[in-house]
Protein backbone atom coordinates (compact mmCIF):
# COMPACT_ATOMS: atom_id res chain seq x y z
CA UNK A 1 0.00 0.00 0.00
CA UNK A 2 1.32 3.42 -0.96
CA UNK A 3 1.57 5.29 2.34
CA UNK A 4 0.67 8.57 0.65
CA UNK A 5 -2.74 7.16 -0.13
CA UNK A 6 -3.45 6.54 3.54
CA UNK A 7 -5.72 9.27 4.84
CA UNK A 8 -5.81 10.80 8.30
CA UNK A 9 -9.22 9.22 8.71
CA UNK A 10 -7.73 5.80 8.12
CA UNK A 11 -4.93 6.50 10.58
CA UNK A 12 -7.47 7.48 13.22
CA UNK A 13 -9.53 4.38 12.53
CA UNK A 14 -6.32 2.39 12.82
CA UNK A 15 -5.59 3.97 16.22
CA UNK A 16 -9.14 3.28 17.35
CA UNK A 17 -9.05 -0.34 16.21
CA UNK A 18 -11.84 0.33 13.73
CA UNK A 19 -10.06 -0.80 10.55
CA UNK A 20 -10.80 -4.23 9.09
CA UNK A 21 -7.89 -6.59 9.89
CA UNK A 22 -6.37 -6.69 6.39
CA UNK A 23 -6.45 -2.89 6.08
CA UNK A 24 -4.93 -2.52 9.55
CA UNK A 25 -2.14 -4.84 8.52
CA UNK A 26 -1.43 -2.74 5.47
CA UNK A 27 -1.26 0.43 7.56
CA UNK A 28 1.08 -1.28 10.00
CA UNK A 29 3.37 -2.28 7.16
CA UNK A 30 3.31 1.22 5.70
CA UNK A 31 4.14 2.69 9.12
CA UNK A 32 7.18 0.45 9.37
CA UNK A 33 8.43 1.63 6.01
CA UNK A 34 7.63 5.32 6.10
CA UNK A 35 8.87 7.79 8.77
CA UNK A 36 6.67 10.55 7.34
CA UNK A 37 3.62 8.40 7.90
CA UNK A 38 4.75 7.70 11.46
CA UNK A 39 4.99 11.44 12.03
CA UNK A 40 1.46 11.88 10.72
CA UNK A 41 0.28 9.13 13.02
CA UNK A 42 2.02 10.80 15.94
CA UNK A 43 0.26 14.08 15.19
CA UNK A 44 -3.05 12.26 15.58
CA UNK A 45 -2.19 10.35 18.72
CA UNK A 46 -3.93 11.30 21.94
CA UNK A 47 -4.48 9.37 25.13
CA UNK A 48 -8.16 8.56 24.86
CA UNK A 49 -8.13 6.91 28.29
CA UNK A 50 -7.33 10.29 29.78
CA UNK A 51 -10.20 11.90 27.92
CA UNK A 52 -12.46 9.23 29.38
CA UNK A 53 -11.15 9.57 32.92
CA UNK A 54 -11.44 13.38 32.77
CA UNK A 55 -15.11 13.04 31.84
CA UNK A 56 -15.63 10.25 34.36
CA UNK A 57 -14.49 12.63 37.07
CA UNK A 58 -17.61 14.70 36.30
CA UNK A 59 -20.03 11.88 37.08
CA UNK A 60 -20.10 12.27 40.87
CA UNK A 61 -20.99 15.92 40.30
CA UNK A 62 -24.19 15.18 38.45
CA UNK A 63 -27.08 16.89 40.19
CA UNK A 64 -28.32 14.77 43.04
CA UNK A 65 -31.48 13.11 41.90
CA UNK A 66 -32.44 11.56 45.21
CA UNK A 67 -33.67 14.86 46.62
CA UNK A 68 -37.31 15.81 46.66
CA UNK A 69 -38.47 18.05 43.89
CA UNK A 70 -38.43 21.75 44.72
CA UNK A 71 -41.76 23.26 45.69
CA UNK A 72 -40.95 26.77 44.57
CA UNK A 73 -39.97 26.48 40.96
CA UNK A 74 -42.75 28.10 38.98
CA UNK A 75 -40.42 28.56 36.01
CA UNK A 76 -39.95 24.82 35.79
CA UNK A 77 -43.31 23.29 36.63
CA UNK A 78 -42.31 20.25 34.64
CA UNK A 79 -39.60 19.28 37.07
CA UNK A 80 -42.20 18.54 39.69
CA UNK A 81 -43.89 15.99 37.51
CA UNK A 82 -40.66 14.07 37.55
CA UNK A 83 -40.68 13.84 41.30
CA UNK A 84 -37.44 13.02 43.03
CA UNK A 85 -35.60 12.20 39.85
CA UNK A 86 -34.50 15.67 38.97
CA UNK A 87 -33.24 18.41 41.16
CA UNK A 88 -33.31 22.05 40.28
CA UNK A 89 -30.48 24.22 39.21
CA UNK A 90 -29.80 25.58 42.67
CA UNK A 91 -29.28 22.11 43.99
CA UNK A 92 -26.64 21.30 41.47
CA UNK A 93 -24.88 24.57 42.11
CA UNK A 94 -24.71 23.60 45.75
CA UNK A 95 -23.59 20.09 44.99
CA UNK A 96 -20.68 21.15 42.84
CA UNK A 97 -17.54 20.85 44.83
CA UNK A 98 -16.17 23.92 43.15
CA UNK A 99 -16.23 25.80 39.93
CA UNK A 100 -13.00 26.15 38.10
CA UNK A 101 -12.50 28.54 35.25
CA UNK A 102 -9.57 27.28 33.32
CA UNK A 103 -7.51 28.76 30.56
CA UNK A 104 -5.89 25.92 28.72
CA UNK A 105 -3.55 27.82 26.44
CA UNK A 106 -1.75 29.58 29.23
CA UNK A 107 -1.88 26.62 31.53
CA UNK A 108 -3.63 28.95 33.94
CA UNK A 109 -5.76 27.62 36.72
CA UNK A 110 -7.88 30.02 38.65
CA UNK A 111 -7.91 28.99 42.28
CA UNK A 112 -11.08 27.05 42.92
CA UNK A 113 -13.45 28.24 45.57
CA UNK A 114 -13.06 26.69 48.97
CA UNK A 115 -14.93 23.45 48.72
CA UNK A 116 -16.60 21.06 51.09
CA UNK A 117 -13.91 18.55 50.33
CA UNK A 118 -11.78 19.93 53.10
CA UNK A 119 -13.78 17.87 55.56
CA UNK A 120 -12.82 14.67 53.78
CA UNK A 121 -9.19 15.78 53.83
CA UNK A 122 -9.42 16.43 57.57
CA UNK A 123 -11.06 13.04 58.11
CA UNK A 124 -8.24 11.27 56.31
CA UNK A 125 -5.72 13.13 58.42
CA UNK A 126 -7.63 12.45 61.62
CA UNK A 127 -7.63 8.73 60.84
CA UNK A 128 -3.88 8.77 61.40
CA UNK A 129 -4.29 10.04 64.95
CA UNK A 130 -4.15 7.73 67.93
CA UNK A 131 -4.11 8.31 71.65
CA UNK A 132 -0.31 8.38 71.71
CA UNK A 133 -0.27 11.25 69.24
CA UNK A 134 -1.51 13.49 72.02
CA UNK A 135 -1.25 11.75 75.40
CA UNK A 136 2.41 12.75 75.90
CA UNK A 137 1.51 16.42 75.55
CA UNK A 138 1.24 18.28 78.80
CA UNK A 139 1.58 21.92 77.83
CA UNK A 140 1.55 24.72 80.35
CA UNK A 141 -1.28 27.26 80.10
CA UNK A 142 1.23 29.87 78.89
CA UNK A 143 2.50 27.59 76.12
CA UNK A 144 -1.01 26.75 75.02
CA UNK A 145 -1.90 30.42 74.97
CA UNK A 146 1.02 31.52 72.82
CA UNK A 147 0.44 28.60 70.47
CA UNK A 148 -3.26 29.51 70.21
CA UNK A 149 -2.48 33.17 69.53
CA UNK A 150 -0.14 32.27 66.68
CA UNK A 151 -2.61 29.82 65.11
CA UNK A 152 -5.68 32.06 65.28
CA UNK A 153 -3.67 34.94 63.80
CA UNK A 154 -2.82 32.74 60.81
CA UNK A 155 -6.42 31.62 60.57
CA UNK A 156 -7.83 35.14 60.71
CA UNK A 157 -10.47 34.32 63.32
CA UNK A 158 -9.83 35.12 66.96
CA UNK A 159 -11.02 32.06 68.85
CA UNK A 160 -10.27 32.68 72.49
CA UNK A 161 -8.59 30.28 74.86
CA UNK A 162 -11.54 30.03 77.22
CA UNK A 163 -13.79 28.77 74.42
CA UNK A 164 -11.20 26.18 73.41
CA UNK A 165 -10.60 24.94 76.94
CA UNK A 166 -14.23 24.70 78.04
CA UNK A 167 -15.59 21.93 75.90
CA UNK A 168 -17.75 19.24 77.50
CA UNK A 169 -16.03 15.88 77.73
CA UNK A 170 -12.83 16.97 75.99
CA UNK A 171 -9.38 18.07 77.17
CA UNK A 172 -7.64 20.65 75.00
CA UNK A 173 -4.13 19.57 74.00
CA UNK A 174 -2.69 21.44 71.06
CA UNK A 175 -3.24 23.96 68.25
CA UNK A 176 -1.58 23.86 64.89
CA UNK A 177 -1.92 25.56 61.57
CA UNK A 178 -2.40 23.41 58.49
CA UNK A 179 -3.61 24.37 55.04
CA UNK A 180 -6.24 23.23 52.58
CA UNK A 181 -5.82 24.40 49.01
CA UNK A 182 -4.76 28.02 49.39
CA UNK A 183 -6.55 28.55 52.70
CA UNK A 184 -5.28 28.23 56.27
CA UNK A 185 -6.81 25.43 58.30
CA UNK A 186 -6.54 25.55 62.09
CA UNK A 187 -6.61 22.29 64.00
CA UNK A 188 -7.27 22.18 67.74
CA UNK A 189 -6.57 18.74 69.16
CA UNK A 190 -8.43 17.18 72.07
CA UNK A 191 -8.59 13.93 73.99
CA UNK A 192 -11.79 12.56 75.44
CA UNK A 193 -12.05 10.85 78.83
CA UNK A 194 -10.84 7.59 77.27
CA UNK A 195 -7.93 9.30 75.50
CA UNK A 196 -9.53 9.09 72.09
CA UNK A 197 -8.33 11.90 69.79
CA UNK A 198 -10.82 14.48 68.60
CA UNK A 199 -10.10 17.46 66.37
CA UNK A 200 -11.81 20.81 66.07
CA UNK A 201 -10.93 22.33 62.70
CA UNK A 202 -11.66 25.74 61.21
CA UNK A 203 -11.06 27.16 57.76
CA UNK A 204 -12.36 30.21 55.89
CA UNK A 205 -15.15 29.63 53.39
CA UNK A 206 -17.26 31.61 50.97
CA UNK A 207 -20.24 29.38 51.60
CA UNK A 208 -23.33 30.66 53.38
CA UNK A 209 -23.82 30.07 57.10
CA UNK A 210 -25.60 26.91 58.07
CA UNK A 211 -26.44 25.23 61.37
CA UNK A 212 -24.82 22.25 63.04
CA UNK A 213 -25.11 19.03 61.12
CA UNK A 214 -24.09 15.58 62.36
CA UNK A 215 -22.41 13.47 59.73
CA UNK A 216 -19.87 10.77 59.20
CA UNK A 217 -16.71 11.11 57.14
CA UNK A 218 -14.49 8.14 56.44
CA UNK A 219 -16.23 6.30 59.25
CA UNK A 220 -15.52 9.02 61.80
CA UNK A 221 -18.31 10.84 63.57
CA UNK A 222 -18.40 14.52 62.70
CA UNK A 223 -20.38 17.67 63.32
CA UNK A 224 -19.94 20.61 60.98
CA UNK A 225 -21.37 24.06 60.60
CA UNK A 226 -20.64 27.36 58.90
CA UNK A 227 -20.86 30.77 60.53
CA UNK A 228 -19.78 34.20 59.34
CA UNK A 229 -17.37 33.08 56.66
CA UNK A 230 -15.76 30.21 58.53
CA UNK A 231 -16.43 26.50 58.28
CA UNK A 232 -16.13 24.42 61.45
CA UNK A 233 -15.74 20.72 61.95
CA UNK A 234 -15.51 18.56 65.07
CA UNK A 235 -14.43 15.05 64.21
CA UNK A 236 -13.22 11.86 65.89
CA UNK A 237 -13.76 8.17 66.38
CA UNK A 238 -16.06 8.73 69.34
CA UNK A 239 -19.82 8.49 69.95
CA UNK A 240 -21.71 11.11 67.93
CA UNK A 241 -23.48 12.32 71.08
CA UNK A 242 -20.14 13.32 72.58
CA UNK A 243 -19.24 15.30 69.47
CA UNK A 244 -22.66 16.92 69.39
CA UNK A 245 -22.16 18.26 72.90
CA UNK A 246 -18.64 19.46 72.09
CA UNK A 247 -19.81 21.14 68.88
CA UNK A 248 -22.68 22.86 70.68
CA UNK A 249 -20.28 24.20 73.31
CA UNK A 250 -17.86 25.48 70.72
CA UNK A 251 -20.45 27.04 68.42
CA UNK A 252 -22.16 28.71 71.38
CA UNK A 253 -18.89 30.20 72.68
CA UNK A 254 -17.95 31.41 69.22
CA UNK A 255 -21.37 32.93 68.56
CA UNK A 256 -21.22 34.71 71.88
CA UNK A 257 -17.72 36.03 71.17
CA UNK A 258 -18.85 37.30 67.79
CA UNK A 259 -21.89 39.03 69.36
CA UNK A 260 -19.71 40.64 72.02
CA UNK A 261 -17.29 41.91 69.40
CA UNK A 262 -19.94 43.39 67.15
CA UNK A 263 -21.83 45.11 69.94
Amino acid sequence: MDSRSITDEELVAFLDGELPPEQAKAVEQALRDDPALRARLDALTIDTDTVKSAFDSLLPLAPGHAEPAPKDSPSQPSSRALGPLVSRRAAIAASLAAVAAIGFAGGRLTAPMQSEDWRMAVAEYQLLYRSETLTHLDPSPAELESERARVVAELGLDIDGTALRNVSGLRYRRAQILGYEAAPLAQFAYLDSRNRPVAFCVTPTEAASRPLETQSFKGLAAVSWIADGFAFLVIGDVPPALLDRAARDLSASLAQASRTKSS
Partner: peptide, 9 residues
Amino acid sequence: ELALPAPGT
Protein backbone atom coordinates in the same frame (compact mmCIF):
# COMPACT_ATOMS: atom_id res chain seq x y z
CA GLU B 1 -15.48 31.55 31.23
CA LEU B 2 -16.84 28.10 30.73
CA ALA B 3 -17.75 26.92 34.18
CA LEU B 4 -17.06 23.29 34.78
CA PRO B 5 -17.22 21.43 38.03
CA ALA B 6 -13.79 20.76 39.48
CA PRO B 7 -13.81 17.16 40.48
CA GLY B 8 -11.90 15.37 43.19
CA THR B 9 -9.55 16.65 45.82
